[in-house]
Design a protein around this nucleic acid. Structure first.
Lengths: 233, 233, 233, 233
DNA sequence: AATGAATGAGCGTTCATTCAT
DNA sequence: AATGAATGAACGCTCATTCAT
């Protein structure tokens, strides 16, 4: 009866030993439906103010059905936040495909990170706000996921350091400068968007950060193919 | 039942036209008691998970009494967050007293800002998380309050720009670099504290940001009295 | 959050560290009110078919209040059954006050036992039916309580055996003959009451059981003061 | 939605005028499957705690299919209890086949009754517990069924009385002594099995009861072929 | 000023039952 | 014949808020 506080991910159907669905397709579709409904509600009203019925309504289904796809409301919250973080994890590497030059890779990764935040500002805010409501095991998973994303930035920075382009004593700290300023675009968007455009914010902030990290070698290496020079980002 | 969406601040006693307190002193004391209890609970468990009874118990009073000092639970939340922001507003100016040099003022203000965050990390996290639960009017007030604090930084930066020490096209954006990296120390403290000390974080991050803003004039002016050079911050 | 499956008895108020009630009297009164309402509902409709709202209504209070006196519905069930068993425990000893003769004591105890069942037939049925719904710890407590009551009968029987009046190899088994025939009056009352009166049932059944246990000494000792001889029981 | 309070027994297929089954055999097989699953669940967890899905899973079929064999969950409960009572009805007569002597018949019937309870203790407990959940019409049917079984004992006793072996004013009451003590073996098994074996319980209890009923004629008639004398029951 | 008993709306969750496939 | 996805009413329980004391 008592649920141990493990970070359950599987929908109940599976858990309870039911057979797999006839149609995995239909199953995933429904899941997405609920996901979208839940995300929309959570973003708008927050986790606690959203009732299961709100979600059901937003998803166009009955409330009971949700429990065939998610263990409980908290599980749904977890899944939704996880999905947001995984989107980060998916988008950043995509931006690096085919890019060889270390500094360009760093710039591309950073811009991608800024962009993914910009595209999902309210989802990002929501993830910041509501993670606290999860149980410790789930939070640990989210943190791990976040560190994975950050690691991609850390790797880019370390490559620049190894190539002699960046001089920064702590690559992970440096990665947090990117992460932090990206998130800041979301967290303080209510004000920032009134004083700079997304492009300007990205350009100026990245320039500032790179300025502080570049060696002379890096600075001269960069000339001619700085991603931040070209007009459209 | 129906809540009008005014950002009520006054305790009910006043509102209802009751007589003034025999002892304003006693009144403030009680208020503080409730404040402290509420903040402690909110930080630990979050707003929604905290019940009025939790707060009453933490404050050592009865639950009913809370309603003589605050209109409702949300009002209490509002006051508590307001108090946190006001602490920022109080501490930063204190650090500037007697300092004349623009760059030193900027550094002192920034360090003060970092420090106030560091001293109240969980309160800061809490304010970030729970502001969403307030009603629009209350949120507007908080934003105004936040802009006031930021304005102090903006002013410092603008003074540096005017003196020819900083070259930065947008002083408010620059102030956000301070604000967001300071907040980041709180928001990502779970990870950052494992890779840098508060002092190192502050020193390195401020150095980075200044590096990108200083003019040559500023750079030479700074020599000899850079707050970030002396060992203890 | 997760409640461990201990057999809680105390009302929540006390448990949660609240201060004791101003008026213990009022508290007990309310508790009794809920008790009576719950027992009435449980007897009539069974535990599962009874909703908390049914009980609240029967008790003339609001549903929420129940949770200030009982931990949950199951706790209420437990308390109610416990109360029933304790009534057995109270009534049987009363019947023995001042009686010295072993056989008379045995008869008096048995009659008392039969009587207490007869007076609370539906409560007895209810206890039989619903104990299964309790958690193991609570069931253990009930079993202990039941054994305490039985022990009084065992003692009476053993005294008779020691005095040479009864010859029965197993006093506890013999006590169960009393207990089960008494319970049978409740369990099969729907039929038994159509073929014998309570008095006749008691008289005939006890006579039968004693017949099988009495020694010749016991039989002659009994003459002249057999409780089962006098007309009114 | 509105349930008419008839004691429906027939599976829906029949009711709705569907064609007869290709294979009555298959039909009965399925029915048994569901029966077994339901009984297993009901005994272990009780009626209310068992969900239709539990039963479906235990029976290895889908939940929907149950409704082609039973009207609703209550109907299934009814059938299962009915089946338990019918097992009593089947087993007791079997024990009497070929036996002529009245007292021996009585003994054989009684032992058979004790035995059938012993073999299905948890089913017996379950029937006691859950009958309350049925509707009045269904309960009436169960009572009738129970009286039928009892009647076999009554007949045996009456035969003994008619033959002058037993002196007991009320044969049905006497039959209840058997029934009651047999059921007691189930109801109080948690304790009784710790103080006597099934054989000892049966032997001692039956001896006790017979002692009280036998006439001198009966007593001398019994000599030499008392079923309770031989070692193995 | 202070208490805490009392309320009752509202929540998350379950599950018997239906029905399209 | 058989499935299991879908429904939605109903439950146990919580807690902000009120108010008699």
């Amino acid at each position: 009866m008592a649920r141990t506080s493990t970070a359950r991910t599987e929908p109940r159907r599976r858990v309870r030993g039911g057979k797999p669905h006839k149609s995995q397709r239909k199953f995933e579709q429904r899941r997405q439906q609920i996901f979208s409904g839940a995300l929309a509600c959570f973003e708008r009203k927050g986790y606690h103010e959203t009732s299961i019925n709100d979600i059901a309504e937003a998803a166009g289904i009955s409330s009971g059905l949700i429990y065939q796809y998610f263990n409980d409301k908290r599980d749904l919250l977890f899944q939704v936040i996880l999905e947001i973080l995984e989107a980060y994890n998916r988008d950043v590497p995509k931006a690096l495909v085919g890019i060889k030059d270390p500094i360009t890779r760093f710039q591309a990764a950073s811009i991608a990170y800024y962009r993914v935040i910009d595209h999902r500002i309210s989802a990002t805010l929501f993830a910041y706000r509501e993670s606290k409501s999860l149980d410790p095991d789930q939070i640990k998973i989210l943190k791990t996921k976040e560190l994975q994303t950050n690691q991609m930035l850390v790797d880019c920075i370390q490559d620049c350091v190894n190539a002699g382009y960046f001089a920064t004593p702590n690559a992970e700290l440096a990665s947090y400068w990117i992460v932090t300023t990206a998130h800041a675009w979301g967290l303080k968007n209510w004000r920032l968007r009134k004083i700079v455009s997304f492009e300007d914010y990205t350009r100026q902030t990245l320039n500032l950060l790179m300025n502080g990290m570049l060696t002379n070698l890096g600075r001269s290496h960069l000339m001619g193919h700085d991603l931040l020079d070209g007009r459209p980002l």
